[in-house]
Simulated assay, not measured.
Amino acid sequence: MSWEGSLGGWAPGNNESRHWDDNDYTEIIFTGCTMFGAVGKSAGVKLWQSIPFSFDKDMGTQTFYNCFNSPTSSTRAWWNVHHEGGDKRYFTIPQLNGSIYTRATVSVKTVYVDTDLAD
């Protein structure tokens, strides 16, 4: 299962992505990152495993840098981990430029999520 979309005006910790069916491999690609309110250097992307009737599981954060270089530059990260009892995943952006305390927001021209390890 894969999907493509975009992000507009996300501040640290204020949004979560759409949820998708997955419990093993997740690859996320951001292309064309733009930051407003600060010079764009990085965005922390945290993957979550949705756990029905319990607290969601933090699957770890990866920092996206390269997508800020130009409108066509991309950053790719993947999580190859399984969590028992999970059924869906989603991501949040808990930090911009390494800080959770900023008034800056980030927009991403293209977000691509892939759940197929084979490609």
Rank of each mutant, 00 (worst) to 15 (best):
residue 54 S to A: 15
residue 22 D to N: 14
residue 94 P to F: 05
residue 35 M to T: 12
residue 116 D to V: 14
residue 55 F to S: 08
residue 11 A to D: 10
residue 117 L to M: 06
residue 56 D to H: 07
residue 103 R to M: 15
residue 82 H to W: 09
residue 89 R to Q: 09
residue 22 D to W: 00
residue 70 S to R: 12
residue 24 D to S: 14
residue 21 D to K: 10
residue 99 S to T: 12
residue 53 F to W: 12
residue 118 A to P: 03
residue 108 V to S: 03
residue 48 W to I: 08
residue 105 T to E: 13
residue 67 C to Y: 05
residue 20 W to S: 00
residue 105 T to M: 06
residue 9 G to Y: 12
residue 78 W to F: 10
residue 46 K to Y: 01
residue 5 G to Y: 05
residue 108 V to Y: 01
residue 28 I to S: 00
residue 54 S to K: 08
residue 118 A to G: 09
residue 7 L to I: 10
residue 60 G to W: 03
residue 61 T to L: 07
residue 25 Y to L: 04
residue 67 C to R: 04
residue 26 T to G: 02
residue 4 E to Q: 13
residue 23 N to F: 10
residue 61 T to H: 03
residue 46 K to R: 14
residue 43 A to F: 06
residue 40 G to L: 13
residue 61 T to E: 08
residue 80 N to Y: 08
residue 112 Y to R: 15
residue 38 A to N: 09
residue 93 I to M: 01
residue 31 T to F: 08
residue 39 V to S: 09
residue 95 Q to L: 03
residue 96 L to D: 03
residue 30 F to E: 03
residue 108 V to K: 01
residue 100 I to N: 11
residue 119 D to E: 14
residue 54 S to C: 04
residue 89 R to V: 06
residue 80 N to W: 11
residue 74 S to A: 12
residue 45 V to W: 01
residue 83 H to T: 09
residue 42 S to D: 07
residue 107 S to Q: 05
residue 100 I to C: 09
residue 84 E to Y: 10
residue 5 G to F: 09
residue 12 P to G: 03
residue 7 L to G: 01
residue 70 S to F: 02
residue 66 N to L: 06
residue 88 K to M: 13
residue 83 H to K: 12
residue 106 V to E: 03
residue 82 H to V: 15
residue 39 V to C: 08
residue 5 G to C: 02
residue 56 D to S: 05
residue 39 V to F: 10
residue 119 D to A: 11
residue 14 N to P: 06
residue 84 E to M: 14
residue 22 D to M: 07
residue 20 W to N: 00
residue 27 E to Y: 01
residue 58 D to L: 04
residue 64 F to R: 00
residue 68 F to N: 05
residue 31 T to W: 04
residue 74 S to I: 05
residue 28 I to K: 01
residue 115 T to S: 01
residue 85 G to I: 02
residue 114 D to I: 04
residue 103 R to E: 07
residue 27 E to H: 08
residue 95 Q to V: 06
residue 53 F to T: 10
residue 77 A to H: 10
residue 34 T to K: 14
residue 41 K to Q: 13
